Simulated scan of single mutants.
Amino acid sequence: MLTDLKIKALKPRDKPYKVFDGDRLYLHVRVSGKKYWRVRFKLRGKDGLFTIGEYPMVSLYQARRERDKVAEQISLGVDPNIEKKAEALREKREDSSTFFAVSEVFFEKKKEGLSDHYVSQWNSIMARDVYPVIGGMPISRITAPYLLEILETIEKRGAPTVALLARQFMGQVFRYAGARLLVEADPTVFLAGVIKRPKVRHNPPLEKPQLIDFFEKLALYKGFPPTVIAIKLMANTFIRTKELRSMKWSFLEGDTIIFPEEVMKMSTKHVVPLSTQSLALIEELRKYNGGHELMFPNARDPSRSMSSTTINRVIERLGYRGDFSGHGFRSTASTMLNEMGYREDLIERQLSHMERKGQRRAYNHAEYMPERRAMMQDWSDFLVSLGV
Protein backbone atom coordinates (compact mmCIF):
# COMPACT_ATOMS: atom_id res chain seq x y z
CA MET A 1 0.00 0.00 0.00
CA LEU A 2 1.23 3.41 -0.87
CA THR A 3 1.52 6.44 1.42
CA ASP A 4 2.20 10.08 0.59
CA LEU A 5 5.73 9.73 1.97
CA LYS A 6 6.44 6.73 -0.27
CA ILE A 7 5.01 8.53 -3.31
CA LYS A 8 7.09 11.67 -2.71
CA ALA A 9 10.19 9.50 -2.41
CA LEU A 10 9.71 7.94 -5.87
CA LYS A 11 12.43 9.11 -8.27
CA PRO A 12 12.43 9.01 -12.10
CA ARG A 13 14.39 6.24 -13.83
CA ASP A 14 15.74 5.63 -17.30
CA LYS A 15 12.44 3.99 -18.21
CA PRO A 16 8.86 4.52 -16.99
CA TYR A 17 7.80 2.19 -14.19
CA LYS A 18 4.73 1.28 -12.12
CA VAL A 19 4.19 1.27 -8.36
CA PHE A 20 1.03 -0.55 -7.25
CA ASP A 21 -1.26 0.56 -4.43
CA GLY A 22 -3.79 -2.27 -4.51
CA ASP A 23 -7.00 -3.35 -6.24
CA ARG A 24 -5.53 -2.59 -9.69
CA LEU A 25 -4.63 1.01 -8.80
CA TYR A 26 -1.07 2.07 -9.50
CA LEU A 27 1.20 5.06 -10.13
CA HIS A 28 2.85 5.32 -13.52
CA VAL A 29 6.14 7.17 -12.99
CA ARG A 30 7.51 8.72 -16.18
CA VAL A 31 11.11 9.51 -17.11
CA SER A 32 10.27 13.20 -16.61
CA GLY A 33 9.37 12.47 -13.00
CA LYS A 34 5.64 13.05 -13.44
CA LYS A 35 3.39 10.53 -11.71
CA TYR A 36 -0.04 9.50 -13.06
CA TRP A 37 -2.71 7.43 -11.37
CA ARG A 38 -4.07 4.58 -13.44
CA VAL A 39 -6.51 1.72 -12.96
CA ARG A 40 -6.52 -1.56 -14.82
CA PHE A 41 -9.89 -3.16 -15.47
CA LYS A 42 -11.53 -5.91 -17.50
CA LEU A 43 -14.85 -5.34 -19.26
CA ARG A 44 -16.64 -7.92 -21.41
CA GLY A 45 -13.51 -10.09 -21.45
CA LYS A 46 -11.21 -7.27 -22.65
CA ASP A 47 -8.46 -5.55 -20.66
CA GLY A 48 -8.72 -1.81 -20.26
CA LEU A 49 -6.80 1.07 -18.71
CA PHE A 50 -8.23 4.22 -17.15
CA THR A 51 -6.07 7.26 -16.33
CA ILE A 52 -7.34 9.12 -13.26
CA GLY A 53 -4.97 12.08 -13.19
CA GLU A 54 -1.60 13.39 -12.09
CA TYR A 55 -0.23 13.28 -8.57
CA PRO A 56 -0.28 15.48 -6.45
CA MET A 57 -3.20 17.29 -8.20
CA VAL A 58 -5.06 14.05 -7.60
CA SER A 59 -4.25 12.93 -4.07
CA LEU A 60 -3.89 9.33 -2.89
CA TYR A 61 -7.31 9.57 -1.20
CA GLN A 62 -8.97 10.95 -4.37
CA ALA A 63 -7.30 8.28 -6.51
CA ARG A 64 -8.66 5.50 -4.32
CA ARG A 65 -12.15 7.00 -4.50
CA GLU A 66 -11.91 7.16 -8.31
CA ARG A 67 -10.72 3.54 -8.38
CA ASP A 68 -13.84 2.54 -6.42
CA LYS A 69 -15.99 4.56 -8.83
CA VAL A 70 -14.41 2.75 -11.80
CA ALA A 71 -15.10 -0.61 -10.13
CA GLU A 72 -18.77 0.41 -9.71
CA GLN A 73 -19.00 1.45 -13.38
CA ILE A 74 -17.48 -1.84 -14.50
CA SER A 75 -20.01 -3.77 -12.39
CA LEU A 76 -22.75 -1.93 -14.29
CA GLY A 77 -21.16 -2.69 -17.64
CA VAL A 78 -20.09 0.93 -18.22
CA ASP A 79 -16.72 1.71 -19.80
CA PRO A 80 -15.12 4.40 -17.54
CA ASN A 81 -13.21 5.93 -20.48
CA ILE A 82 -16.43 6.42 -22.47
CA GLU A 83 -18.17 7.80 -19.38
CA LYS A 84 -15.29 10.25 -18.82
CA LYS A 85 -15.64 11.58 -22.38
CA ALA A 86 -19.41 11.87 -21.95
CA GLU A 87 -18.96 13.79 -18.70
CA ALA A 88 -16.52 16.18 -20.42
CA LEU A 89 -19.07 16.79 -23.16
CA ARG A 90 -21.79 17.42 -20.56
CA GLU A 91 -19.60 19.92 -18.73
CA LYS A 92 -18.72 21.69 -21.97
CA ARG A 93 -22.40 21.91 -22.86
CA GLU A 94 -23.26 23.21 -19.39
CA ASP A 95 -20.57 25.90 -19.66
CA SER A 96 -22.34 27.23 -22.76
CA SER A 97 -25.79 26.62 -21.24
CA THR A 98 -25.73 28.87 -18.21
CA PHE A 99 -29.02 30.44 -17.21
CA PHE A 100 -27.74 33.78 -18.49
CA ALA A 101 -26.77 32.38 -21.91
CA VAL A 102 -30.06 30.53 -22.38
CA SER A 103 -32.04 33.52 -21.15
CA GLU A 104 -30.32 35.88 -23.59
CA VAL A 105 -30.97 33.58 -26.56
CA PHE A 106 -34.60 33.11 -25.51
CA PHE A 107 -35.37 36.80 -25.03
CA GLU A 108 -33.61 37.87 -28.22
CA LYS A 109 -36.13 35.73 -30.10
CA LYS A 110 -39.09 36.74 -27.92
CA LYS A 111 -38.70 40.50 -27.63
CA GLU A 112 -39.66 41.36 -31.20
CA GLY A 113 -43.09 42.93 -31.02
CA LEU A 114 -43.00 43.41 -27.23
CA SER A 115 -43.62 46.84 -25.74
CA ASP A 116 -40.70 48.94 -24.52
CA HIS A 117 -42.16 48.73 -21.03
CA TYR A 118 -42.13 44.91 -21.03
CA VAL A 119 -38.54 44.81 -22.34
CA SER A 120 -37.49 47.31 -19.68
CA GLN A 121 -39.15 45.22 -16.94
CA TRP A 122 -37.42 42.06 -18.16
CA ASN A 123 -33.97 43.67 -18.34
CA SER A 124 -34.32 45.34 -14.96
CA ILE A 125 -35.56 42.29 -13.03
CA MET A 126 -33.06 39.92 -14.63
CA ALA A 127 -30.06 42.21 -14.12
CA ARG A 128 -30.95 43.24 -10.57
CA ASP A 129 -32.49 40.14 -9.04
CA VAL A 130 -31.98 37.00 -11.13
CA TYR A 131 -28.60 36.99 -12.88
CA PRO A 132 -26.53 37.81 -9.74
CA VAL A 133 -27.84 34.59 -8.12
CA ILE A 134 -28.18 32.04 -10.94
CA GLY A 135 -26.90 33.74 -14.10
CA GLY A 136 -23.59 31.89 -14.14
CA MET A 137 -24.99 28.49 -13.17
CA PRO A 138 -25.59 25.69 -15.69
CA ILE A 139 -29.34 25.82 -16.21
CA SER A 140 -29.64 22.05 -15.80
CA ARG A 141 -28.33 22.28 -12.23
CA ILE A 142 -30.63 25.01 -10.98
CA THR A 143 -33.21 23.77 -8.52
CA ALA A 144 -36.21 25.36 -6.81
CA PRO A 145 -34.37 26.46 -3.61
CA TYR A 146 -32.17 28.84 -5.63
CA LEU A 147 -35.27 30.40 -7.17
CA LEU A 148 -37.03 30.60 -3.82
CA GLU A 149 -34.09 32.61 -2.47
CA ILE A 150 -34.52 35.10 -5.33
CA LEU A 151 -38.27 35.48 -4.79
CA GLU A 152 -38.04 35.84 -1.02
CA THR A 153 -35.29 38.46 -1.31
CA ILE A 154 -37.47 40.54 -3.63
CA GLU A 155 -40.53 40.11 -1.40
CA LYS A 156 -38.59 41.17 1.71
CA ARG A 157 -37.78 44.52 0.13
CA GLY A 158 -41.51 45.10 -0.28
CA ALA A 159 -41.95 44.30 -3.97
CA PRO A 160 -44.24 41.24 -4.24
CA THR A 161 -45.42 42.22 -7.72
CA VAL A 162 -41.79 42.22 -8.92
CA ALA A 163 -41.32 38.80 -7.30
CA LEU A 164 -44.30 37.45 -9.24
CA LEU A 165 -42.85 38.83 -12.47
CA ALA A 166 -39.45 37.30 -11.66
CA ARG A 167 -41.06 33.87 -11.26
CA GLN A 168 -42.95 34.35 -14.52
CA PHE A 169 -39.81 35.41 -16.42
CA MET A 170 -37.68 32.57 -15.03
CA GLY A 171 -40.41 30.07 -15.87
CA GLN A 172 -40.39 31.23 -19.48
CA VAL A 173 -36.64 30.59 -19.69
CA PHE A 174 -36.93 27.11 -18.15
CA ARG A 175 -39.76 26.14 -20.48
CA TYR A 176 -37.70 27.31 -23.44
CA ALA A 177 -34.74 25.27 -22.14
CA GLY A 178 -36.99 22.24 -21.64
CA ALA A 179 -38.16 22.39 -25.24
CA ARG A 180 -34.50 22.15 -26.25
CA LEU A 181 -33.74 19.27 -23.85
CA LEU A 182 -31.45 21.42 -21.69
CA VAL A 183 -33.52 20.75 -18.56
CA GLU A 184 -35.91 17.99 -17.56
CA ALA A 185 -38.37 20.17 -15.64
CA ASP A 186 -39.35 23.76 -14.85
CA PRO A 187 -38.52 24.28 -11.14
CA THR A 188 -40.69 27.40 -10.95
CA VAL A 189 -43.81 25.19 -10.90
CA PHE A 190 -42.95 24.20 -7.32
CA LEU A 191 -43.10 27.87 -6.29
CA ALA A 192 -46.67 28.58 -7.35
CA GLY A 193 -48.40 30.42 -4.52
CA VAL A 194 -45.18 31.14 -2.60
CA ILE A 195 -45.63 34.87 -3.20
CA LYS A 196 -49.07 36.22 -2.44
CA ARG A 197 -50.41 38.54 -5.09
CA PRO A 198 -51.14 41.92 -3.47
CA LYS A 199 -54.70 43.11 -3.62
CA VAL A 200 -55.17 45.72 -6.31
CA ARG A 201 -56.36 48.94 -4.73
CA HIS A 202 -58.11 51.01 -7.34
CA ASN A 203 -57.86 54.69 -6.49
CA PRO A 204 -61.32 56.22 -6.21
CA PRO A 205 -62.11 59.15 -8.52
CA LEU A 206 -61.68 62.63 -7.14
CA GLU A 207 -64.80 64.59 -6.43
CA LYS A 208 -65.16 68.19 -7.60
CA PRO A 209 -63.84 69.85 -4.39
CA GLN A 210 -60.90 67.43 -4.29
CA LEU A 211 -60.11 68.12 -7.93
CA ILE A 212 -60.05 71.86 -7.23
CA ASP A 213 -57.80 71.30 -4.20
CA PHE A 214 -55.47 69.07 -6.24
CA PHE A 215 -54.84 71.65 -8.94
CA GLU A 216 -54.46 74.45 -6.43
CA LYS A 217 -51.61 72.46 -4.87
CA LEU A 218 -50.17 71.66 -8.30
CA ALA A 219 -50.12 75.39 -9.14
CA LEU A 220 -47.81 75.94 -6.15
CA TYR A 221 -45.53 73.01 -7.02
CA LYS A 222 -42.03 74.17 -8.02
CA GLY A 223 -40.80 70.99 -9.66
CA PHE A 224 -39.65 70.22 -13.21
CA PRO A 225 -42.05 72.11 -15.57
CA PRO A 226 -42.48 69.26 -18.13
CA THR A 227 -43.70 67.00 -15.31
CA VAL A 228 -46.35 69.54 -14.34
CA ILE A 229 -47.37 69.78 -17.99
CA ALA A 230 -47.55 65.97 -18.13
CA ILE A 231 -49.96 65.87 -15.16
CA LYS A 232 -52.17 68.59 -16.65
CA LEU A 233 -52.18 66.83 -20.02
CA MET A 234 -53.19 63.55 -18.35
CA ALA A 235 -56.05 65.36 -16.62
CA ASN A 236 -57.25 66.83 -19.93
CA THR A 237 -56.87 63.70 -22.05
CA PHE A 238 -57.26 60.95 -19.36
CA ILE A 239 -54.78 58.71 -21.19
CA ARG A 240 -52.84 56.01 -19.34
CA THR A 241 -49.46 56.80 -17.77
CA LYS A 242 -47.81 54.30 -20.12
CA GLU A 243 -49.33 56.07 -23.12
CA LEU A 244 -48.19 59.48 -21.89
CA ARG A 245 -44.62 58.24 -21.39
CA SER A 246 -44.55 56.75 -24.89
CA MET A 247 -45.75 59.93 -26.64
CA LYS A 248 -43.57 61.11 -29.51
CA TRP A 249 -43.85 64.32 -31.48
CA SER A 250 -44.47 62.19 -34.53
CA PHE A 251 -47.74 60.99 -32.95
CA LEU A 252 -49.18 64.49 -33.38
CA GLU A 253 -51.37 65.03 -36.41
CA GLY A 254 -52.87 68.49 -36.28
CA ASP A 255 -55.24 68.65 -33.30
CA THR A 256 -55.06 64.91 -32.69
CA ILE A 257 -52.64 62.41 -31.13
CA ILE A 258 -52.64 58.97 -32.72
CA PHE A 259 -51.13 56.22 -30.60
CA PRO A 260 -49.89 53.28 -32.71
CA GLU A 261 -50.80 49.71 -31.84
CA GLU A 262 -47.46 48.81 -30.25
CA VAL A 263 -47.83 51.28 -27.37
CA MET A 264 -51.45 50.56 -26.49
CA LYS A 265 -52.58 48.15 -23.76
CA MET A 266 -54.79 46.16 -26.13
CA SER A 267 -52.48 46.56 -29.14
CA THR A 268 -55.10 48.61 -30.97
CA LYS A 269 -54.51 52.05 -32.48
CA HIS A 270 -56.05 54.83 -30.41
CA VAL A 271 -56.98 58.39 -31.39
CA VAL A 272 -57.12 61.23 -28.86
CA PRO A 273 -58.73 64.51 -30.02
CA LEU A 274 -56.97 67.47 -28.42
CA SER A 275 -58.86 70.36 -26.87
CA THR A 276 -57.55 73.90 -27.21
CA GLN A 277 -56.22 73.59 -23.64
CA SER A 278 -54.35 70.37 -24.46
CA LEU A 279 -52.86 71.96 -27.59
CA ALA A 280 -51.69 74.91 -25.49
CA LEU A 281 -49.99 72.56 -23.03
CA ILE A 282 -48.22 70.78 -25.88
CA GLU A 283 -47.10 74.08 -27.34
CA GLU A 284 -45.67 75.04 -23.95
CA LEU A 285 -43.91 71.68 -23.77
CA ARG A 286 -42.06 72.45 -27.02
CA LYS A 287 -40.04 75.07 -25.16
CA TYR A 288 -38.51 72.31 -23.04
CA ASN A 289 -38.50 69.12 -25.11
CA GLY A 290 -39.22 70.09 -28.69
CA GLY A 291 -35.84 68.89 -29.88
CA HIS A 292 -36.27 65.31 -28.69
CA GLU A 293 -38.14 62.41 -30.29
CA LEU A 294 -40.04 61.71 -27.08
CA MET A 295 -42.39 64.36 -25.75
CA PHE A 296 -41.58 63.39 -22.15
CA PRO A 297 -37.98 62.11 -22.19
CA ASN A 298 -35.97 61.03 -19.18
CA ALA A 299 -34.10 64.02 -17.75
CA ARG A 300 -30.83 62.06 -17.62
CA ASP A 301 -31.15 60.08 -20.84
CA PRO A 302 -33.40 61.73 -23.48
CA SER A 303 -33.39 58.53 -25.55
CA ARG A 304 -35.56 56.93 -22.85
CA SER A 305 -38.96 58.00 -21.59
CA MET A 306 -39.54 59.50 -18.17
CA SER A 307 -39.67 57.01 -15.30
CA SER A 308 -42.90 55.09 -14.77
CA THR A 309 -43.00 56.48 -11.20
CA THR A 310 -42.37 60.17 -11.96
CA ILE A 311 -46.02 61.23 -12.17
CA ASN A 312 -47.08 59.38 -9.01
CA ARG A 313 -44.14 60.71 -7.01
CA VAL A 314 -45.23 64.28 -7.71
CA ILE A 315 -48.80 63.38 -6.77
CA GLU A 316 -47.51 61.90 -3.50
CA ARG A 317 -45.58 65.12 -2.78
CA LEU A 318 -48.82 67.03 -3.18
CA GLY A 319 -50.24 64.99 -0.29
CA TYR A 320 -52.14 62.24 -2.11
CA ARG A 321 -50.02 59.22 -1.24
CA GLY A 322 -52.19 56.10 -1.46
CA ASP A 323 -55.32 58.11 -2.20
CA PHE A 324 -54.81 59.08 -5.83
CA SER A 325 -52.53 58.31 -8.78
CA GLY A 326 -52.06 59.34 -12.40
CA HIS A 327 -54.39 56.51 -13.39
CA GLY A 328 -57.06 58.10 -11.22
CA PHE A 329 -57.66 60.82 -13.81
CA ARG A 330 -59.31 58.17 -15.95
CA SER A 331 -61.89 57.15 -13.35
CA THR A 332 -62.41 60.82 -12.41
CA ALA A 333 -63.13 61.79 -16.02
CA SER A 334 -65.32 58.74 -16.57
CA THR A 335 -67.43 59.47 -13.48
CA MET A 336 -67.86 63.18 -14.16
CA LEU A 337 -68.52 62.81 -17.89
CA ASN A 338 -71.28 60.33 -17.08
CA GLU A 339 -72.71 62.90 -14.65
CA MET A 340 -72.47 65.50 -17.43
CA GLY A 341 -74.76 63.31 -19.54
CA TYR A 342 -72.33 61.74 -22.03
CA ARG A 343 -73.11 58.21 -23.23
CA GLU A 344 -71.18 55.37 -21.66
CA ASP A 345 -70.09 53.89 -25.02
CA LEU A 346 -68.68 57.29 -26.05
CA ILE A 347 -66.67 57.58 -22.85
CA GLU A 348 -65.50 53.96 -23.12
CA ARG A 349 -64.22 54.56 -26.65
CA GLN A 350 -62.21 57.55 -25.49
CA LEU A 351 -60.82 55.54 -22.58
CA SER A 352 -59.70 52.96 -25.21
CA HIS A 353 -61.58 50.21 -23.39
CA MET A 354 -62.34 47.08 -25.41
CA GLU A 355 -65.80 45.55 -25.58
CA ARG A 356 -66.71 43.33 -22.66
CA LYS A 357 -66.94 39.57 -23.05
CA GLY A 358 -70.05 38.52 -24.90
CA GLN A 359 -70.37 41.84 -26.72
CA ARG A 360 -69.13 42.91 -30.13
CA ARG A 361 -65.32 42.63 -30.20
CA ALA A 362 -64.60 44.89 -33.16
CA TYR A 363 -62.93 48.15 -32.20
CA ASN A 364 -63.02 51.16 -34.48
CA HIS A 365 -60.46 53.68 -33.22
CA ALA A 366 -62.19 56.54 -35.08
CA GLU A 367 -65.75 55.66 -34.03
CA TYR A 368 -67.88 58.61 -32.77
CA MET A 369 -65.00 60.98 -33.56
CA PRO A 370 -67.06 64.22 -33.91
CA GLU A 371 -68.83 63.51 -30.62
CA ARG A 372 -65.59 62.53 -28.90
CA ARG A 373 -63.91 65.70 -30.07
CA ALA A 374 -66.76 67.79 -28.66
CA MET A 375 -66.66 65.81 -25.41
CA MET A 376 -62.92 66.34 -24.98
CA GLN A 377 -63.33 70.09 -25.45
CA ASP A 378 -66.23 70.16 -22.96
CA TRP A 379 -64.11 68.23 -20.47
CA SER A 380 -61.22 70.69 -20.71
CA ASP A 381 -63.64 73.62 -20.43
CA PHE A 382 -65.07 71.98 -17.32
CA LEU A 383 -61.59 71.75 -15.80
CA VAL A 384 -61.01 75.43 -16.58
CA SER A 385 -64.25 76.27 -14.76
CA LEU A 386 -62.76 74.60 -11.69
CA GLY A 387 -59.70 76.79 -11.93
CA VAL A 388 -57.41 74.20 -13.50
Rank of each mutant, 00 (worst) to 15 (best):
L2Y: 07
T3M: 03
D4G: 09
I7R: 07
K11D: 02
Y17D: 12
Y26F: 15
K34V: 08
K34W: 01
K35I: 06
K35Q: 03
W37F: 09
L43T: 03
K46D: 05
K46W: 03
D47L: 13
T51N: 05
G53H: 05
E54D: 06
P56Y: 08
S59Q: 01
L60G: 13
V70G: 00
S75A: 14
D79C: 08
K92G: 12
D95M: 13
D95K: 15
E104D: 15
E104K: 11
F106H: 14
K111N: 03
D129L: 07
I139P: 05
S140P: 05
S140C: 11
L147N: 05
L148K: 14
I150A: 07
L151H: 06
I154V: 15
E155R: 10
R157N: 07
P160F: 01
L164W: 02
Q168W: 02
G171S: 15
A177P: 01
G178K: 12
A179V: 00
A179N: 11
P187T: 10
T188W: 06
V189F: 11
G193C: 04
P198I: 11
K199N: 10
K199R: 15
P209K: 11
P209G: 07
F215N: 06
F215R: 01
A219F: 05
M234Q: 03
A235M: 00
N236K: 10
T241G: 13
K242N: 12
K242M: 05
L244D: 01
R245G: 03
G254L: 08
M264N: 11
M264A: 09
S267F: 08
L274W: 00
T276L: 06
A280K: 12
L294D: 02
P297V: 06
N298S: 11
S303M: 04
T310E: 10
I315T: 08
R321Y: 04
G322W: 05
F324N: 07
R330P: 02
A333C: 01
S334Q: 04
M340H: 02
I347D: 00
L351F: 00
Q359D: 10
N364M: 05
P370H: 07
P370Y: 01
P370Q: 10
Q377A: 05
F382Y: 15
V388I: 07
